[in-house]
Structure formats: structure tokens, C-alpha cells
Write a protein that binds this DNA or RNA. Structure first.
Lengths: 207, 207, 207, 207
DNA sequence: TATGAATGAGAATTCATTCAT
DNA sequence: TATGAATGAATTCTCATTCAT
């Protein structure tokens, strides 16, 4: 009987592709972009070298996909948290919580975004810049609204957004490094919210 | 400046060593640790490959020295700014100003600390962690003092320090990217100070 | 035409085989033996890779068949032209005309014989040598007859045959490169005949 | 004492470069362009892989140099033979003799020009076409002169030149294959001259 | 028969590092 | 000290071929 496509086959192929990407995240997170060789990845995924190139044109492209997916996922989680609340404190808390959740559920994936080590390959550096830019814009939006409402002190919202992004990344990085208990993580969320509220000069803390 | 012909390193014999280190910073900053080849460095320094290995055991060690000196220099500049003032606002301003000064005078040097791309080589990753740790501790100290003096709101000073380090790095990164005029840089310093004071919950802004 | 659905090969099952061989000639002629990948061929034939290996044991063998058929076809065309005439001028003209006809009707096929690029794979190189040998012998035969009849100057017929084969190939190669009109092609045939008659030292041109 | 350059060193480097090129010719001639791996070449030259890339950017470029040198050398030999004589028979003989000399002195080198097997790599194919073109022009020149002088029959000199080039190449190819004695080679030269004179329709054979 | 996912040997190329001069 | 030719391990990527479905 001839080969049947688009049935089980298609699903299987996608599954393998996904499995390989997951293997890749692990390797990238463990060794960094450069130290991770294609051989490492296929070994982790338990396939042959050729298989890698059957699914991805090259290492850089794979990393690009990975980065894109990861970044989009995190971005979406944060943006949704920010937009689904109305008060600034609630927004901050939801977004931070979302970030922490993802970070602890997929540490490797998040490490990828934080450490990068993609300084050299131009296309990756650009991607990283774009992602940071989107992240900054996401944080900036609620700030602009709050500014208008005079809920926070007058300030350069863009600059504050940059600062918050940098601040939270650094904290998450340290949290991931010193493997925390759930409890500690929750405490950190609280501290991050407090930091954020102070940093934006939130005026009605009595709320 | 670090790794420059300072008091101790001004023996004539070290002229070449210094030249190579200066060349190395430029190359590392421009291409990242991995993409920068020893050939690139010696070419930039206008010496032969062999010469490199006369002065340094290997590429990693050179980068280590470079990183160490660079980090020490920046750290010292910031620490000295923080310790030579007494009021928190003055400390913040001086430290930020110091950081910005170095960043604009030696962009390559600072880029080295920020971008790194040293994710892969373990020894380099460790060094980076150590440096961040020292930086965090440096910022933490005045916070602890101010906490004691009840000049700032109660908080986890360590966490706040992490946040400030991350925040300022992110801002400096963006400042370096969008080449600013002196005037813009000064404005950024002001904004960074304001952000810092708010973020730590500085209580007597009337001062 | 060779490898086309001829009397013997017209079983339906061979339709795919034929399609693949036709596709193969095109690809080989366009890219040369090495640069032509099996993937290129199956893509051109619009079948899957596996199918290729169902019909042919390997790439080299396919090329072998192709070469053989192509060579046999051209050889047969030329030999038949040479044997079906009696006078040397008529033989020359018919053979050249046959060669040109095939060359312009199936440029890819002829290019295959001319360019080859089969220098590396030993079995292919041998095949090429055998084909040239047969071609030379084909041209040599009428020369020997004419020598006996003293219609041409005394000469080493074998050497002359080699020369003619080389000469005509070179000309056809140039003709194919500079796509000619039918008219130009005909003129070339005339010139090739003249060259041939002179080259063999044909004595009674008045005939 | 520091390293002294441009003295013995320079000469040595050139010598090695030349040695590697000679090794390369041997390998290319034996296996063809594609089958010849860089590893084969460095093994033949008894150096390390890296050394190859120290002297040449890549295999294709090396082959290009080789081809260029070889072609230029042969071309020059033939052109000089053609221009240093005045009568057509003398020109033919000198040029053929030059060709044969080179072919027997450097068989590998000449085989390179004849077989090529460079059908795939575009840059090489182009080079080959250029070389053939120059060769054809070189043979064409004396023909045009002789045409003007009415020493040869009216004809398309370009076409005749193409034919002669193809003819002689084929003959030389066979000569190299069936290793000849000096005596046989000389006889071949005579036959080639005779063929050439007949082929161009040389009128005053009494000369 | 037909498919196309999977394989892995092997090729080109890079680059940190060594060492004779 | 200084040089730069030489090294070779390691990496990426290709492609003919196999095989479960």
C-alpha cells in the first residue's frame, strides 16, 4: 500500500520536530548558544545528525525559532496580564506572577532569553533587541495610562519601562540561580511588586 | 583607565601587552567573545600571533584579565562614588554619573560587561556572576545604611540592589545603542536618579 | 529517441522509470554528474526519493544506463548514416547531419556526452572511453574503405578518425552554446563537411 | 633574535606553496576535481589540513590557480610556436610539437585541461571556456593570414580553428592514455601536421 | 509500488595553539 | 622577545542510501 501522508505521519513529524526543539532548549540553556553543537542537540534528542538538517536548515535558524517562540510566549503572558487588569498594582502583580510562573515552569527556556550569549551572531543579537523592545513597550503602556490618570509621579515612561525590564530580569535571573522554594518565589513576587510600585511612584498606596 | 599604562604597568616591556589588551577590548566589544579570533586581536594590535601567546597563555585568560580589570575599574568608580557621599540622593547621583562617564568614555569596555556573550565558557560565566555580585553588594550597602536611618521604606535591600543593577544596566545599554549627545546623557542621569530614589522609597525628597 | 517509451519500454509500469530518466538527463546536463543530486532528479520527475531507488540501484548506475542509451542512440544514428551511403562525401554529410539533428533536438542528451564531468567516478570514465572508442571506429571504417579505393590520401586512418571525432565534438559544443537558427546550423553542417573532406584528403572533389 | 622575514623564509614559503600545487596537480589528474579531497592533497603534499588553508582560500581557488597557470603556459607555448614561424606548415609543426612536449613532460597538468571534470563548479566551467576560446583564437590567426595569402582554401577560419583544437586535443588525449615511446610520439606529431595541412586545405604542399 | 523520514559517513573549513627560527 | 608557518581537533553541513509504513 502506498505511503499515506497528512494522517498520522504528519502528526508524528510535528511531534519529532517539537521533541527536537525541546532537546535543543535544554542543550542551549545548559551550554549556551556557541558551546552547544549540533551533535550535542541530536544526541540529546537521540536522532542522527542528518535528521537535524531535515527539520531545520541550520543551528542559527533553529535557535531563531526557539527564541521567537519563547519570546512570544513570555511576551504574550506578560501583555495579557498587563491588559487584563485595570489598576496598576494589579497589573504589576499579575505580570510579575506570570513571568515567575513561566520562569519556574520552563527555566531553561527563560534562561535562554536572559543569558543569550548570542552576542556574536548578528541575526540573534537583532532578535534579542527586538524582543526587549517589545517587552519595554508592553510595560510602558500601562505606565502611560497611569501617568494620564495622575496615579504615578511625572516621569519619562519609556525610561522607567526600560528600568523595570532590566530590574525584573536581573531578579528572575538570581531567583533561577538559587533554586527557590515555591514559598520563597512567592515572597519574591511580593517584593518585586513593591519595588515596582515604588519605582513608578505610585501615589495611592492606600488603595 | 584600566589595563592602560598606569603606575604599575608602565614598564616599557608592557607597552605591547597593553596595546594588545586595548585591541582586545575593541575586538571583543565589537564581535563578542566567540566571534573574536586571536587573529583579529593581533591584527588590531598590529603584532604577530605568536606574540599573543608570549604575553597571554590563551584567549580565555586574556578575556579573564580584561574582564577583571574592566569590572574592577567600573566597580571601583561606582563604589568610590557611593562611599564618598553621605546622603542617599548624592550617592545615587554620583554613582550613576560615574557609570555614565565610563560608559561614554569607554563604550567598548562597558559593552564587554553588558553583552558578554560569555554564556558558554564556564570560567567566564562565573566571573560575570562574581562581578554582578560585587556590584549588587556595592549598591546594597548604602541601602542598608539608609534603611537603618529610616530614610527609605522598609524593604529587602538585597532585592532592591539586584533590581537597581539590572535597571541601570538596561538603561545604559540603550543609551549606548542610541548614541546620545552629552546633553541627552545628562538628562538620562537625572531620570535614572529619580527612578532610583523612587524605587528605594526615599522618604525625604524635600532635602 | 533513447530511454523514451519505445517499443520495448512501453509497458505502463515503465512510465515512471522513463519519466525519471528523462528528468535525469535534464538535470545531469544542466548541473553535471556531481552537482546533480538524487533529490534534484526526483524533484524534476515529481516523485519521491524512495521511488528512485525502487527503479535504480544507485545514481551511478542510472547515469550508466543513461549514458549507454544516449551513446548507443547517437552512435547508431551516426553509424547508420555512414553505412547507408557509399560515397565518402555522402557519408560525411549524412553522419554530420545526423549528429547535428540529435544535438539540436536533444541538446541535454548530447551535452551529457560532451561535458561529462565524469572525470572522477572510474566506471563512468571507462564508459566514456568506450563510447569514444566506438565512435572513432565508426568513423575509421569508411576511411579504411576509401583508403583502399585510393579516394583519399594515404594516412593513419585511426589517427584521422580520432581527429574528426574531436573536431566535430568541439564544433557541436560551440554550436549548442551559441544557440543557432536552423539556417546557421545548416551552414555549419556544410562547413563541417568541407572540413572533413579536406582533412581526409579526399581526392575527387569534382565528383 | 627576532624573526627575520623576506630572506630565506620567503623563498621557503614559495617553495612549499609550489610543492603543494604540484601535489595538487597529481591528485587532481589522478582522481578528478571532485573526487580529489583536500585531505588527499595535503596527504600527498605531506602537510596538515590547516596548512592547505594557510596557502589557499579553498579547493576551488587552488584549482583555479592551477588551471590558469597550466592554461597560460600551454597557450603561451603554442602561441609562441605559431608566431615565431612564417610558413603555415612550420607553424603547425612547431605548435603541435610544443603541445606534445608539454603533454609528455607534464602529463598530469595537461590531463587537467583535457578532462577537467569541472562541469559542475560554474567558475571552473567558465574558466575552461575562456581557455578554449583563447586557444581557438590562437589557431585562427595564422589561418586568417594564410587565407589572405591564398595559401589555403577559402573557409570559415573560426570553424576550422575550433575543429583543429578539438582534433588535437582528442589525439593528445589518446596519446597520453596509451603511453607512447618517444619515437611513437614523434610519428604522431608528423601525422598531426599532415592532418592539419590537409584540414586547412594547404595549397602548396610542394614547399 | 510508493513514500519521505531517518541515517551517518565524509567533505570543507575554522581557529586556538605550538614551535623552529 | 618576536615572528608567522604549521598543526589538527573540532564543527557544520551535504547527500546517497535505507526502511518502516
Amino acid at each position: 500500500m502506498p505511503y499515506r501522508s497528512t494522517d498520522t505521519t504528519r502528526r508524528k513529524k510535528d511531534a519529532k520536530r517539537t521533541a527536537m526543539m525541546q532537546a535543543a532548549v535544554r542543550v542551549f540553556a545548559a551550554k549556551g548558544y556557541h558551546a552547544a553543537t549540533v551533535r550535542d542537540i541530536v544526541h540529546e534528542a537521540d536522532v542522527a545528525v542528518g535528521t537535524f538538517y531535515f527539520y531545520f536548515p541550520d543551528k542559527e535558524t533553529l535557535f531563531g525559532h526557539l527564541f521567537e517562540e519563547t519570546a512570544a510566549f513570555l511576551l504574550q503572558a506578560i501583555e495579557q496580564a498587563l491588559t487584563s487588569r485595570t489598576s496598576l498594582p494589579a497589573q504589576l502583580e499579575a505580570a510579575i506572577q506570570a513571568y515567575i510562573n513561566v520562569a519556574f515552569y520552563e527555566p531553561a527556556v527563560v534562561q535562554l532569553l536572559l543569558v543569550g550569549g548570542m552576542g556574536s551572531v548578528p541575526s540573534l543579537a537583532e532578535r534579542r533587541v527586538e524582543y526587549r523592545e517589545k517587552l519595554i513597550r508592553a510595560w510602558q503602556r500601562p505606565l502611560l495610562v497611569s501617568l494620564e490618570r495622575r496615579e504615578i509621579e511625572p516621569q519619562n515612561a519609556r525610561r522607567t519601562a526600560e528600568a523595570l525590564v532590566g530590574a525584573y530580569d536581573e531578579i528572575v535571573f538570581h531567583l533561577l540561580a538559587s533554586t527557590q522554594t515555591e514559598r520563597e518565589a512567592q515572597q519574591a513576587v511580593g517584593e518585586m511588586v513593591q519595588f515596582g510600585l515604588r519605582a513608578v511612584g505610585y501615589l495611592y498606596q492606600a488603595e
